[in-house]
């Protein structure tokens, strides 16, 4: 892909770039950082990125929200409702995982007095 192609890509896919930017930042934090709270933050960023990606998959140019709030609204220019429903589910699942991760972090800190994963090595090969 040449420079022109890259610029064209950037212009047309701003949302995708934002979404995958968040996804990669989140993944990078989770892979590299050794502090559990930072890892959980990375997980949160990763999930936000995935949700943004799902919503932007269903977007239609100049589309409106798929709600017939009065009878005169046409169904032609509405965005796809399915990804929005999926994102609702994905957000709730993300909240559940985050809550559980935080509670485990609380317990881990009670046991070890640290959240540094390098120092938490009860289990070995």
């Amino acid at each position: 892909m040449d420079i022109q192609g890259v610029i064209h890509f950037m212009q047309n896919y701003t949302y995708y770039i934002g979404a995958f930017g968040l996804i990669f930042i989140g993944l990078f934090i989770m892979l590299v950082k050794r502090n559990l709270i930072k890892v959980i933050l990375g997980l949160s960023i990763l999930e936000t990125g995935v949700n943004l990606f799902l919503v932007s998959v269903g977007y239609i140019s100049k589309g409106t929200a798929p709600i017939f709030s009065n009878a005169s609204i046409e169904g032609k220019s509405m965005v796809d409702p399915v990804p929005q429903a999926l994102v609702l589910t994905a957000i709730v699942i993300g909240v559940a995982v985050l809550a559980l991760a935080l509670s485990l972090a609380v317990r881990l800190y009670q046991h070890y007095g640290t959240l540094d994963l390098r120092q938490i090595r009860e289990q070995r090969w």
Partner: peptide
């Protein structure tokens, strides 16, 4: 100790997988 530690490891890897 070991239970919580394994659960944390499992959760982190599992969460990346699910994403």
């Amino acid at each position: 100790k070991s239970g919580i530690e394994s659960a944390v490891k499992y959760l982190i890897q599992g969460a990346i997988g699910s994403s």
